[in-house]
């Protein structure tokens, strides 16, 4: 349940910026290879946001898929998991996206 610690950090980071202003929405980018589950984040968000100006805010999570580039054949391909293997057989690949774990913006009322 590392999502709970992460969401507590999120609430702290937002409050640092918005203070007492009610927050209507929080926009996150959480890649499919980040090791963090969006569903668990939503569940934990409700718990940690309760009693703060973030209570009831919409949590909008953009979930970019994993994309990698093969250093051997230069092809870009979708990474479904962290197993770094190009369809050409090479394991020398660079992860381009999917590991994001970012607080992008908040909408305040």
């Amino acid at each position: 349940m590392h999502e709970l610690s992460i969401m507590q950090g999120l609430v702290d980071a937002v409050l640092d910026r918005t203070g007492e202003r009610p927050v209507a929405a929080v926009n996150l980018r959480v890649g499919s290879l980040s090791g963090v589950l969006p569903d668990a984040m939503r569940f934990c968000f409700d718990v940690v946001a309760a009693g703060t100006p973030l209570a009831g805010a919409r949590l909008q999570i953009d979930e970019p898929e994993g994309v990698a580039r093969c250093r051997s054949c230069a092809e870009e391909f979708v990474l479904a998991d962290l197993i770094l293997l190009c369809p050409c057989g090479s394991a020398d690949v660079e992860v381009l996206s999917g590991r994001e774990l970012m607080l992008m913006s908040v909408e305040v009322a």
Binding site: G9, M102, L103, M104, V106
Partner: peptide
């Protein structure tokens, strides 16, 4: 009076740690 606005943060969620 605060008008509704979007505040850009673009920071890593693990930034504090």
């Amino acid at each position: 009076v605060h008008h509704p606005e979007t505040i850009t943060l673009e920071q890593n969620l693990l930034a504090k740690n």
